[in-house]
Design a protein around this nucleic acid. Sequence first.
DNA 1: TATTGTTATACTCTATAACTATA
DNA 2: TATAGTTATAGAGTATAACAATA
Lengths: 161, 161
Amino acid sequence: MAEGSMRDGLPEGLASVTGFQLSKCGWWLEQRLEEELKPLGIRVRHFLVLAMLSTSETLSQQEMAGYLLLDPTLMVGLIDDLETRGLCERTRDPRDRRRHSVRITEDGRDLHDRARALADEVGADVFGPLSSDELRTVVKAMGRVMEPFWAEQMIRPRRKR
Amino acid sequence: MAEGSMRDGLPEGLASVTGFQLSKCGWWLEQRLEEELKPLGIRVRHFLVLAMLSTSETLSQQEMAGYLLLDPTLMVGLIDDLETRGLCERTRDPRDRRRHSVRITEDGRDLHDRARALADEVGADVFGPLSSDELRTVVKAMGRVMEPFWAEQMIRPRRKR
DNA sequence: TATTGTTATACTCTATAACTATA
DNA sequence: TATAGTTATAGAGTATAACAATA
């Protein structure tokens, strides 16, 4: 029996924690998308890699680990998964032969397009209660908030957990 | 070497995934707070429990698990931690003796106040780039977006991972 | 000497199943 | 028979450390 004051369906004291609802919203979005992507045989992280590669000629595994906040060792298996299915390909970077230049393939682009359509559906559903003006404001706000984070992240990477 | 088009310090294809920045913003907030709370000897989840209890007479462990999206078995140790430090107390609910009525103590309230001050600092720092108008819009938007989630959650609980 | 990618291993965290007591 | 809470265990996921190739 939830007594005490409530707000937005939550105990007031919890709803008033700055960022709590935002954190859970992020979690909800990810869970929803994880479910939607199952029929495609990929996880959210696979989709995010394809999303990065879709607008970049090539990226190194370290760069991608930095953007996804994943430990670089996890990128190995992740790219393995995609390469095995012919969704991306690794070549040695001729300018620095330690690096792998990862590039998306045509099949990868096709799967990316399908996955993005699903991601857009989830986004439209979750953010449904917002007017397009409000959604635009939120998206732009997140970009401004996270800009200093990414700038710092690309210099001194932090990882998950 | 990040080639291709960029937006907000990210590859365009990644920045344009609906909710990606929002998810990472939630993660960043949590990491920052986790660090700030270490001197108090608690984790974010402990703070969130105290936050709930601060505005509710009593709550059951199941209710709290539902709000925090944690498996109920995890609440046991969580409440143990707080009770051992005298921050909350368990009593049997006289109307349903299976339930534990969890209540915050005076010491718990004190620690909660200190933790919330830190949470507010983190929030002010992370959301610093936003005007107060924008921040208000974002917070209100999150409340509206998550309302149907909490309504559903309290009926058919889903857990993490 | 430092960095990218790789592999194997250890660790952390969480979920699962089984149990007690209450309903 | 179902539910709240508890416990121990198994499983998933992640980070750590060591290595090869290259800078």
